[in-house]
């Protein structure tokens, strides 16, 4: 038993020792502190909850800046209650959009005001239209973007704050922008955030950095809306299993007492 265990350990150590020596072409992003622990990080904050104020600010950034080009098709306005908005506020937010519905009994499509049950209104009617309006490639849907990129929230922050003049000798093709965090460094999206580009209702100073962190928090929630429920249930399940394991260990000792 002990010999087999040391054998397996030796194997793992050998691989672990070899791993860091590999030439890594993947980018590393500066790690930020997240009150929710980071959606893709794992074991980072098992009690983590989303910062409600940051969520609301992040939603504002999405609504006023990102949503001009990026859809969030998997979200509905009703989901915003998780951000701390009440029913009247959500109804008002949804009513700010005109939705195409139908066909009605006459067979006609018609326009109505949005309701909380509606999905977020997409900026373009379809992917082709989105691509045509954006130089041939549709801007990605942001519903799952934090889980769909290596680095998660940290990648979003790095990308939002990574616009800078291209270094000497680096040619940026026309229609592209230099970004130190984007794989390949050439991104079609122009720098979306600017200092004071939005005005936060809670008086927080809207630096690019602040907006980037807030929108990353919002996108993290959008990608993993059940994170808080998961953390809460996890605690109960872990306590239950650990106590049960303890009881079973005691039972095992008792049953085996006459055999040792």
């Amino acid at each position: 038993m002990r010999r087999l265990r040391s054998l397996i350990l030796a194997g793992l150590v050998a691989v672990a020792a070899a791993a860091p020596a590999v030439a890594s072409e993947e980018m590393e992003y500066p790690k930020n502190e997240w009150s929710h622990g980071g959606v893709t990080r794992g074991f980072s904050n098992i009690f983590g909850t989303f910062d409600r104020k940051a969520l609301q600010r992040g939603f504002q950034v999405y609504k006023e800046v990102c949503s001009a080009c990026h859809s969030m098709n998997l979200l509905s306005y009703r989901n915003l209650s998780a951000l701390g908005y009440n029913e009247a506020e959500i109804t008002a937010i949804a009513a700010g959009y005109d939705m195409t519905d139908g066909p009605n009994d006459e067979g006609e499509m018609f326009t109505r005001k949005g309701v909380p049950a509606d999905h977020f209104k997409a900026p373009f009617p379809n992917e082709k239209a989105a691509a045509a309006a954006n130089g041939g490639k549709a801007p990605p849907d942001l519903s799952l973007i934090v889980k769909a990129r290596k680095g998660g929230e940290d990648y979003i922050v790095a990308l939002m704050t990574g616009f800078e003049p291209a270094p000497a000798g680096f040619t940026v093709p026309s229609g592209g922008n230099y970004n130190k965090a984007f794989p390949g460094h050439v991104i079609a999206m122009p720098p979306p955030l600017s200092d004071g580009g939005v005005t936060f209702a809670d008086g927080t100073k809207a630096t690019v950095e602040q907006q980037a962190k807030d929108v990353a928090t919002f996108l993290a929630w959008a990608a993993e809306p059940n994170l808080e429920a998961r953390h809460q249930m996890g605690l109960k399940v872990m306590i239950f299993l650990i106590v049960l394991a303890g009881i079973l260990y005691a039972a095992k000792r008792a049953v085996w007492a006459d055999q040792h």
């Binding site: 893709t40 794992g42 074991f43 996890g234 399940v237």
Partner: peptide, 11 residues
């Protein structure tokens, strides 16, 4: 197993 399901589900 539960630790991964609840705290690192995408590991």
């Amino acid at each position: 197993f539960a630790a991964f399901v609840f705290y690192a589900p995408n590991f």
